[in-house]
Computed example of a mutant assay.
Amino acid sequence: MATRAEYRIDVIAGDGIGREVVPAAISCIDTLADKHEFRVHWQHRDWGSDYYRAHGRMMPTDGLDQLAKGDGVFLGAVGVPDIPDTETLWGLLIPIRRSFHQYVNLRPVRTLPGVRSPLRGGDELDLVIVRENVEGEYSEVGGRLYQGRPEEAAVQESIFTRAGVARIARYAAQLAASRKGVLTSATKSNGIVHTMPFWDEVVAEHAGEVRLDSVLIDALAARLVLQPSSVDVIVASNLFGDILSDLAAGVAGSIGVAPSGNINPEREFPSMFEPVHGSAPDIAGQGVANPTGQLWAGAMMLEHLGQPAAAAQLERAFAAALADGVRTADLGGEAGTEEFTAAVLDRL
């Protein structure tokens, strides 16, 4: 008799609606584990803004060492109005991404049943954005000078390494080859005269056999609005990928259903999976949060763990619930978080 696969997943529900949508996704994954004969051991971490208020930091000093022992991290949301994002994000999310070399931020964007795009042609949207996740424009190099004086200045340096650009380009090219064979690279080499021409050169060197289409970021943003189905796989720097993925999710109908994976492709460290939406403090605690983004992130995690059949079943289940008209308020429906989750469980 074959031994059941077992996984240890660290859970950081975090802040706001993260505490509502994470349990919803866990219940669905546990149901799938029984059906597909694997087991998930959930290690719940009470890290986040409440932990910060009590301890002055977002996670324990050995938090990364604790997470390194697991097979993955399942994150809900981070951020509250009364604590600066520089504390909440740079104290939890970004250290995990960088310490675990999660240099791929994978963001699939697809129009789901019953979720209407605000744009003509957006209802057929199906693309993936591959965002470089650990360097680029989001570096820590820089600072503030002469604070409080008229000549006060802020300096922020972008860091693009050959190794960093090459590995994200290779990953995106391999993904594009498995889909339509076309890779769109977001650039701004006509205005950013050092880092973006370097980006273009290295991406071209590692695009392999796929057809490479290098598009200026402003033109690409317009193209996602005017011709959203004309792109398939986009590779972009940290900042450009962050912006484009939210834009694409909006074109697909809702940022509230979008997932993401922070991937370490070499599997030297755990990867982390999370919805794109934030902590939504305006609706937190009301039981109305849409768990679809967390469910989809859970499906991405199952795929990464080597459970593709379970991942596909979970995607089919939440898509079927949406198609049958079970929708939360953000999608124009009346279902609460628990009601929508129950509908997904029924379809599992």
Rank of each mutant, 00 (worst) to 15 (best):
E124H: 14
L295P: 02
G63Q: 00
C28L: 13
E152T: 03
E87M: 07
G136L: 03
K180Y: 01
G208N: 13
Y103P: 08
L119T: 03
L92Q: 06
L75F: 10
D330W: 10
D282N: 07
D46K: 08
V231R: 03
R120Q: 10
A309D: 15
G332D: 02
L125N: 01
A343V: 03
M1F: 12
A343F: 03
P113M: 10
M58Q: 13
E266C: 06
G14P: 07
L119Q: 08
M196V: 04
L322W: 02
R57C: 03
G136T: 12
D126E: 02
V235Q: 06
R45E: 15
Q174S: 15
E152R: 06
F340A: 03
S117E: 08
R131D: 09
V182I: 15
R149Y: 10
A54M: 11
D282C: 13
V11K: 10
T328I: 05
S27I: 10
R45K: 15
D46M: 12
D232H: 06
S158T: 15
A342Q: 15
G256P: 01
V22S: 05
I12R: 04
A5Q: 05
D34P: 00
A289N: 07
G181C: 11
G76M: 08
R57I: 01
A329Y: 09
V40G: 00
A329D: 11
A54P: 00
V21Q: 02
D65W: 00
L244T: 04
G56H: 04
D50V: 03
A163P: 04
L314G: 02
E338F: 00
S214E: 06
V128H: 01
V257K: 01
G76K: 00
V231T: 13
I26T: 10
Q147S: 09
F100T: 05
A33S: 15
I192R: 05
K69P: 00
W47Q: 05
D10C: 09
E201R: 14
R57F: 03
C28H: 02
T328N: 06
I234D: 02
I255Q: 09
P84F: 05
G241M: 01
F240L: 04
A163Y: 12
V233I: 14
G18M: 04
G72V: 10
I263M: 13
G250K: 06
H44V: 14
S237G: 10
E201F: 10
L119P: 01
S117R: 10
H304A: 07
E205R: 15
G114Y: 09
E338C: 00
V155N: 07
H55R: 08
H44K: 11
V225I: 15
A177T: 05
R131G: 11
T341V: 12
E137I: 10
L295Y: 02
L305F: 05
G143Y: 07
Q307W: 06
P60T: 02
P291E: 01
L32M: 12
L247Q: 09
I94Y: 15
V225D: 09
L106K: 13
P113R: 11
P281G: 11
K69G: 02
L247G: 04
G70Q: 10
M301I: 11
L305N: 07
S230V: 03
